[in-house]
Computed example of a mutant assay.
Amino acid sequence: MTHVNLIRHCREQSGLSQAELGDRVGVTRQTIAAWEREDREPSVAQLAKIAQTLGVSVELLLQTSRPATETFEPGLMFRADDPSALNPYLRATLSQKAADYAFVETLVQEVPTLPALRPLQGYNDYIVEEVAREIRDWLGVGEACPLGDVLALLESKGLKAILHPLPPEISGFSAYTETDGATIFINESHPTERKFFTALHELAHLVFHRQEYRISVEIKAHLRFNKSKRSDPSEKAANHFAGAVLLPEDVIRRELHAYRDRWLPEPLLMDIKRRYGVSLRTVLYRARQAKLITIKQKGQQIGILNKKYGADNEPVTLPQPEHLTRLERMVYLALRQGKITISRAAEILGKPLIKVRESLNAWLEEAEA
């Protein structure tokens, strides 16, 4: 029996209506509604199309329906300020994605890596700035250079980064085990600069608070909200760290030295955003942390941005990151070595078979060149 509730939850999570899902699967809206009511069941071929469209595994959709009172608990456990923020069906989907990623790592014998643990109790701005400089060195980025594509940079170091649709209020979260290393989940619907910030925010937790991820032998994930508990010292440290890695203190001082104790013009903020991949608000926070502007001015300028664009929006749209992800590269390597089937590769990557074949051929041609 198909897990019909999961089809509905994953469809809603993907932002698709019944009609839109029907168009992609090749059936009517009424058919989707019938499947979700459990009046009818999709065929195996239709189920594969549903899984592909929703970005979940076929196995997940084939699980037996359970009573509403029974907990649908995935293998990956989530610890959160608000445990209801991620419904159990989304947890199951993300658990499967993390497991698939770790499986492919094992297939191609790649070892997950992480920077050294630097336990931090509370919040210490000096230590955060120091560790941020160390992380830029670990990433191999010059002191004054923009990071560029942060996700590609982190993946080049062996970190697992997974983009997936999440509830709008969730920017991302992370998980860690000694065997599988770290996995950072990022809301794929958020703007580019927010994705970059979230990835580094979660890296901060993996550096400063790694001991909090594991209790007994269970995997514990660290769910982080962009807007939650701003007074939490661990959140404050992670936010400061992300901004400091993106915009080191020497850089922000060089960029804004002519505007010390002066109003920062919006065109200047937008120019820094384009070059460093940061939000306008991050520039203002870093200007305050470098003591170039006052707390009052920072608050006033952020208030004006909120009034003009809304609390979650900004002018200047940065291009979405476009690169061959670490997972894609490892999957293509596994295909080349005959360690995985093309259908399994398509399922792991959440892409149609024809797209996987096309991308594989392009990758092979580039590798040979």
Rank of each mutant, 00 (worst) to 15 (best):
297 Q>D: 08
283 V>T: 06
338 G>M: 08
331 V>T: 06
319 P>N: 04
324 L>E: 14
316 V>K: 04
334 A>K: 07
305 L>N: 02
290 A>P: 00
317 T>H: 10
268 L>K: 07
304 I>R: 13
277 G>M: 04
318 L>N: 00
265 P>N: 03
250 D>P: 11
288 R>L: 14
343 S>E: 15
256 L>C: 03
242 A>L: 06
296 K>Q: 15
236 K>L: 14
336 R>A: 12
268 L>C: 03
246 L>P: 02
291 K>N: 14
336 R>Q: 14
298 K>V: 04
338 G>H: 11
271 D>R: 11
292 L>A: 08
237 A>R: 02
312 D>S: 11
330 M>H: 13
318 L>V: 00
265 P>V: 00
285 Y>R: 09
266 E>R: 04
302 I>Q: 12
266 E>H: 01
284 L>M: 01
253 R>H: 06
282 T>G: 03
265 P>I: 02
272 I>K: 01
307 K>H: 12
266 E>T: 03
307 K>Y: 14
294 T>A: 09
334 A>T: 07
333 L>I: 15
326 R>T: 08
289 Q>S: 10
330 M>Y: 13
329 R>E: 13
301 Q>E: 07
261 D>S: 14
258 A>T: 12
261 D>W: 12
307 K>R: 15
276 Y>D: 00
244 A>V: 07
330 M>P: 08
292 L>N: 05
300 Q>K: 15
260 R>V: 13
314 E>I: 02
288 R>V: 10
275 R>N: 03
305 L>E: 00
245 V>P: 10
275 R>L: 00
334 A>V: 07
296 K>Y: 14
236 K>E: 12
264 L>H: 05
323 H>I: 10
258 A>W: 10
339 K>Y: 07
325 T>W: 00
